[in-house]
């Protein structure tokens, strides 16, 4: 097994999760609260990676942020290297590709918080933002945790987008899933099996944890 691929995958998954917590929570909150009539369009965009082949996302990221586009030239000027085949490119692609895996559980969890508790907080003089951190988030955290764990696991195992945007540079963009592909290509079934088994075990453990936590009665705040 390739330790640098394992390290890279873990790093990518962790960073993607952090970015999606920062970006996905406000987005989910907006989706739950907003009465904006065009909201369904945003919801559709968020859900797109669920149905889109990763190659489509990768292709548009490459052409949109490649060295021949204005955005790509800006990226090169700021970052000092071109967008494709970089770790930053990989991170952006992963964030977009895992968006629904974070935002949908987040939105479900936030929507599940009793609206009256939020209103009670407002009448007690607490601002909407403070209410979010003092009431909504503490009550929604099982769902938020589930979204974060799903994002982590999903990023750990992603393949198509990584290959399209990141290529296959050992130590820089060669993740576990890509390493497995390489091993199989080279007919190294033993190495492929070790890496694949690790991914399978980690993914299973993570999902089992999510479902086990949600079954625990103390995990929900019983009001009655």
């Amino acid at each position: 097994m390739d330790p640098s691929a394992l390290l890279l995958s873990a790093e990518l998954a962790a960073l993607t999760t952090v970015v999606l917590l920062a970006v996905g929570l406000p987005l989910a909150w907006w989706l739950v609260q907003s009465r904006f009539p065009g909201k369904f369009l945003v919801e559709a965009v968020v859900a797109l990676p669920l149905v889109l082949p990763p190659t489509v996302l990768g292709f548009y990221l490459l052409t949109g942020l490649g060295p021949h586009s204005a955005a790509g030239r800006l990226f090169t000027a700021v970052a000092g290297h071109p967008f494709p085949f970089s770790f930053e490119g990989l991170l952006l692609a992963s964030v977009l590709y895992s968006l629904p895996f974070a935002v949908q559980p987040f939105a479900g969890a936030l929507a599940g918080v009793d609206r009256r508790l939020v209103e009670a907080s407002h009448t007690l003089g607490v601002s909407p933002l403070a209410t979010f951190f003092r009431v909504t988030l503490p009550l929604a955290w099982p769902g938020v945790l589930a979204g974060a764990v799903l994002t982590f696991a999903h990023t750990l195992g992603e393949f198509g987008v990584v290959l399209m945007v990141g290529g296959n540079i050992p130590g820089r963009t060669r993740t576990l899933a890509v390493a497995i592909f390489d091993h199989v290509e080279a007919l190294e079934y033993g190495a492929a099996h070790r890496t694949a088994a690790l991914l399978l075990a980690v993914s299973f453990a993570v999902l089992a944890l999510v479902y086990a936590l949600q079954r625990r009665p103390s995990f929900r705040w019983n009001d009655r």
Partner: peptide, 18 residues
């Protein structure tokens, strides 16, 4: 509501369960 200084008692009391 924050600026009105009103106390509201909800039908189901809406105590913060956590």
């Amino acid at each position: 509501p924050q600026a009105r200084g009103v106390g509201l008692l909800f039908q189901d009391h809406a105590l913060f369960p956590h």
